[in-house]
């Protein structure tokens, strides 16, 4: 069976259980499913919301490219990535990655790989809105995220 890749960029929330069920539906060859969910933190009460801007079209294309690379590299049977945009309140979902494979290690690695590359090359930008009503800064990219991405090129 060819690997299925599902990518969506959307304003609305997603249902993790429903996405896993959809990914596994009708097949009995999958042995491992790893999910990663990224949520909006409240930063100890200081954050009212994150505003997520994205580059429509390129966001979908770039995440699809990363998922297909993960499928090839780790032999995944299926991958799903959903990224939200717009205003997201603390406690809400931002991103979901699901990786499925016959055995667990490929699924763990696949989900990890997709997230590391998504953070550094999918065109999304976060701006903070503070609990006191003021509009904060655009978040800065972290060197740690570049380092997390770069370790994949050293490992092989």
């Amino acid at each position: 069976m060819t690997a299925s890749v599902t990518v969506r960029v959307q304003r609305e929330d997603f249902d993790l259980a429903a996405e896993v069920a959809a990914l596994c539906h009708g097949r009995s060859d999958i042995g491992a499913v790893v999910t990663f969910s990224g949520l909006c933190r409240d930063e100890a009460g200081a954050l009212a919301a994150l505003e997520l801007e994205h580059y429509p079209g390129m966001a979908e294309t770039e995440i699809s490219r990363i998922c297909r690379e993960a499928v090839t590299r780790f032999g995944l049977q299926a991958a799903t990535a959903i990224h939200r945009f717009g205003r997201i309140a603390p406690g809400e979902n931002i991103v979901l990655v699901i990786a499925a494979s016959p055995h667990r290690q490929a699924a763990f690695d696949g989900a990890n790989f997709v997230m590391d590359f998504l953070k550094t090359s999918a065109p999304f930008w976060k701006k903070e809105h503070h609990a006191d009503g003021s509009v904060g800064e655009w978040l800065s990219a972290k060197d740690a995220d570049d380092a997390a991405r770069d370790r994949w090129s050293r490992e092989r």
């Binding site: 990224g38 997520l52 994205h54 580059y55 079209g57 390129m58 294309t61 770039e62 990224h83 931002i94 991103v95 997230m115 998504l118 953070k119 550094t120 090359s121 999918a122 065109p123 999304f124 930008w125 976060k126 655009w138 978040l139 800065s140 990219a141 995220d145």
Partner: peptide, 28 residues
């Protein structure tokens, strides 16, 4: 990005329909 693909600063822009300029990305 040229035509929605990441490029470096040395990339020729000939034939570009759309060029995007943006800061380092902070999604995920």
């Amino acid at each position: 990005a040229i035509n929605q693909e990441h490029v470096g600063h040395g990339e020729p822009i000939a034939g570009a329909r759309e060029i995007a300029l943006f800061p380092p990305m902070t999604g995920g």
